[in-house]
Design a protein around this nucleic acid. Sequence first.
DNA 1: GGGCGACCTATGCTTTTGGATAGGCGGGGT
DNA 2: ACCCCGCCTATCCAAAAGCATAGGTCGCCC
Lengths: 204, 204
Amino acid sequence: MKILIADDHELVRDTLIAFLERETDMHLAACEDLNRALETIKKEGPFDLVLLDYSMPGMDGLTGLEKALAANDNQPVAIISGTAPRAIAQQALDSGAAGFLPKTMGAKSLINAVRFMAAGEVFAPVKFMTEVIEEEENALAKKLTARELQVLDGLCRGQSNKEIARETDLQEVTIKLHVKTLCRKLEAKNRTMAAMIAKDAGLF
Amino acid sequence: MKILIADDHELVRDTLIAFLERETDMHLAACEDLNRALETIKKEGPFDLVLLDYSMPGMDGLTGLEKALAANDNQPVAIISGTAPRAIAQQALDSGAAGFLPKTMGAKSLINAVRFMAAGEVFAPVKFMTEVIEEEENALAKKLTARELQVLDGLCRGQSNKEIARETDLQEVTIKLHVKTLCRKLEAKNRTMAAMIAKDAGLF
DNA sequence: GGGCGACCTATGCTTTTGGATAGGCGGGGT
DNA sequence: ACCCCGCCTATCCAAAAGCATAGGTCGCCC
């Protein structure tokens, strides 16, 4: 099993290699930026798995991923990152990455993840992928008052102002006011867009 | 490493055990329903991983999962199923399951998944979790004509009828018509609800 | 060739939204 | 005490959305 690791932090490369070599029978290669990685892939044939650091010279977001995938005959290429948020992880997977590894992962889990991806499976730590969603919820939710959230919930269920007014025991005009401030705070043009933004943020 | 497998299909139990014993050094136990599984857990102490079939006598949806988690000192308990849809998988993970294994998984991947979960990670096959979304997309999308999808896209971006009309080079009244038929087909009361339904279905 | 469904347009009408402007009430901070 | 802010209400108006009804083209299938 041939694995290529590309990361500009020498420490990360070395520990990763040391650990994988000790615990598995994998054949490892490493380099410190994308261009060298691409060269190595061309020279030493397709790897069973390529690990790319997300913030590494030459990566340019996810275009580096696509280049590596092309170079490696569409064999598994995964992204590894210490800082990238969950949204990047999702994008990476959508772009055909074999997985996404946050550097916060335990070493044992990492080995298993590597085995997984080399076997052709797609891997992403469920914890990481779901945890951060809650953060976003709060980030958006804490900008809104309790009332506004209540009204926003109504919007997301497609209720009219009148219906929301009945449910909240307020006047219809008041709901209009809240809808307007919601649109301002969420930078939405109208109620529908506000509802979509709330939905996108994982709220409700 | 101690693993307990509970499945009412003897064939599944046997092949699983045979495979895991041959490929790993795990100590395996097996039983054919939830009650026996709970007894085994109590008698033979906490397991490093418990695999529960989702449709097995005594499971009663996910309450069986919770019982097993309690019995096993909150050590990893995972759900394995051949038929359960992705929604169940999500619920299971939310309820504290260590993972979700569709029976369609390859044997090699399965071993890795077992290792993973025994190590305390949460596992779910990304392919499975995202694939099914596409099915739903189509189920909804194929009820709609091309035009209607085009209009629905506009709704989801919070556009007004007029804006959609400009983009599609149609009259505003025509957009109104499509919105109406969309609401009928999607069983929505208004444009906002239609947009939310589309979003929920994973469309756009 | 007739029927049917997707698609487009039109008119006329009511309801809902969205926006502006203005004011009252209560709590928290300076 | 004063001001600001969240919250609620009010009135007026214009725009957008929703609904009904009616009619036209086109392609497909029996």
